[in-house]
Nucleic acid binder design. Structure first.
Lengths: 135, 135
DNA sequence: TGTAACCGGTATCCAATGGAAACCAGGTAG
DNA sequence: CTACCTGGTTTCCATTGGATACCGGTTACA
C-alpha cells in the first residue's frame, strides 16, 4: 500500500484528520522552534508568545502521540522536561516552515487586500443606506 | 519595510493571525482544488467531502477578503458563482499543497506511532491498577 | 398542477474547542 | 513566611465548528 491510496479530500480518510492536526498555527510555531534543537516546556512557552500552558501541553502531547516529538523527563530538582523533534517531525517541520515564511513575506499584501475589501463593503452599505428602495 | 520585520512568534504581529487563517485544513483543500482552475460553489462542496455549506461559505469569504481568491457572480439562471485563485493565492497554494502531500505520504507512520503510544498508555494504566500503592 | 431538484447561500442551534486564570506538588531563595 | 521556580491539570467562559433547516428563484418531471 503506498501513499496514492490516501486522499485528504475524502471525509473519512485518516489523512483528513492528520491534516487537521498538523495544519495548526501552534504546531507550525512549535516545530519551527524544535528543529533548532531540544527545548524545555517553559522555554517553548516563552518563545511562542501568547500560548497558554494548557494549549502548549495539549499540543505537545498530541505531537508526541503522533511520533513527531519525543518527551524526556530528567529527575532533576526541579524536574526537567525536554522536548525534541524526531526525524519524521523534522520532515514535517521542513514542510510547515515555508508556511510561516510565506505568512511573514506576504502579510502586507494580505493586509492591503483586507483594507480594500472592507472599504468596498462600507461603500456598498452606504449605497444601500442612501437608496434603501433598492432593497 | 521588508518581511524581516514581521515575526509570527510575536503574539500581536498580524502575521500570527494570518498564519492562523492559512494553516487550516479547509484552506489547504480548497486552494489545492482552485489551483487547477476556477470552480463553482457546489462543485467545490462536492469535491471537499464533508465540508458544510456554512463553513465553505465562510472560508471562501475570508479567502476572498485576504485577496487569495476572487469571486465572480454571473447573472445566469440560476445564478452562477465562480471562485478563482489569484496569483498570490497560487503562491500560497504552492506552499500548502506539500502539507497535504506530506499528510498523505506519512499517515501510516503517524497511525503506527499513535497505536504504540496508546498501547503504552494502556500498559501504564494496567500497572497502576495492579500496584496502586505506587500512586 | 404539484413537487422535487438545482443554484448559492443564511439562520439557527448545540456541542466542541480555545484561551484566561486558578490551582497543584515539590522544591529553592530571600 | 513569602515568593517563585519547575511542568503541568482544572475550571470556567466566550468563541467557534458543524449539522440542520430554511431561503428565493428557476427548471425538469409526472
Amino acid at each position: 500500500m503506498n501513499h496514492m491510496d490516501w486522499n485528504a479530500y475524502a471525509a473519512l480518510c485518516p489523512t483528513r484528520q492528520a491534516l487537521d492536526r498538523i495544519a495548526d498555527k501552534w504546531t507550525v510555531l512549535i516545530l519551527g522552534l524544535l528543529c533548532d534543537g531540544p527545548m524545555r516546556f517553559n522555554a517553548i512557552r516563552r518563545r511562542v508568545e501568547g500560548i497558554s500552558q494548557k494549549v502548549l501541553s495539549q499540543t505537545l502531547k498530541s505531537l508526541e502521540r503522533d511520533g513527531l516529538v519525543v518527551r524526556t523527563a530528567y529527575p532533576t530538582v526541579p524536574v526537567t522536561v525536554e522536548y525534541a523533534i524526531t526525524p519524521i517531525g523534522a520532515s514535517l517541520a521542513d514542510t510547515v516552515t515555508p508556511l510561516r515564511r510565506w505568512a511573514e513575506e506576504n502579510i502586507e499584501s494580505i493586509l492591503r487586500a483586507r483594507r480594500a475589501y472592507d472599504q468596498a463593503e462600507v461603500q456598498m452599505a452606504d449605497a444601500a443606506f442612501n437608496s434603501p428602495i433598492q432593497r
